[in-house]
């Protein structure tokens, strides 16, 4: 045992084998490293989870817009446009859709924007902040003379 040992913490020393005072910092580094690593892993997993959930919700919202634009619906005109007047009356099929999706944990509302007109169905819905939107460009029949471009959006969120 000599005085060099403390001077050369990180080097081999032909005069000694045990290094009891270096073991503690080494253990510290390992523990911190492992903690950070697991944190990162957890974060990555959470991020992946969140992303896939978002993607899933987005696909659901997209599917809903597709269902809404189905030519079989009463408010879709032969050209594939949305008739504004009948869309505003169409709460019954929409309620049906909402009931269908409720068991899956989804809640949503529809919004049709055309020029300055904004129609939200159902009109009195409470909208949380963390919703996901899928939009489609549609044409909106205002009356027999006016058909203008508009946007149909589905705002979708998970029920708490």
């Amino acid at each position: 045992m000599g005085g060099n040992r403390t001077r050369h913490l990180l080097s081999s020393n032909e005069e000694a084998v045990t290094e009891e005072y270096t073991a503690l910092p080494a253990l510290c580094v390992v523990v911190i490293g492992l903690t950070l690593f697991f944190l990162l892993l957890a974060h990555a997993y959470a991020a992946y989870q969140a992303q896939s959930e978002t993607a899933h919700s987005y696909h659901t919202a997209e599917l809903l817009t597709e269902k809404l634009l189905d030519p079989a619906n009463a408010f879709i005109t032969p050209g594939g446009a949305i008739d504004l007047a009948s869309f505003m009356q169409a709460s019954e099929p929409l309620t049906q859709l909402q009931q269908d999706y409720s068991p899956l944990g989804f809640d949503f509302l529809f919004r049709l924007t055309a020029n300055t007109t904004i129609v939200t169905l159902p009109a009195d819905a409470y909208i949380p902040t963390n919703y996901i939107v899928a939009s489609r460009e549609v044409s909106v029949v205002l009356n027999d003379a006016q058909t203008i471009p508009g946007r149909l959006s589905v705002l979708l969120w998970r029920q708490p």
Binding site: S11, S12, V17, T22, A23, V29
Partner: peptide, 25 residues
């Protein structure tokens, strides 16, 4: 105590470990 001419400090292992963890990160 056993005597040897070639010994490596424990801290080398730790640094190696830290490097591997960073790499996987």
């Amino acid at each position: 105590p056993p005597r040897g001419q070639l010994a490596v400090s424990l801290l080398y292992d730790t640094l190696l470990f830290a490097a591997m963890v960073s790499l996987s990160a």
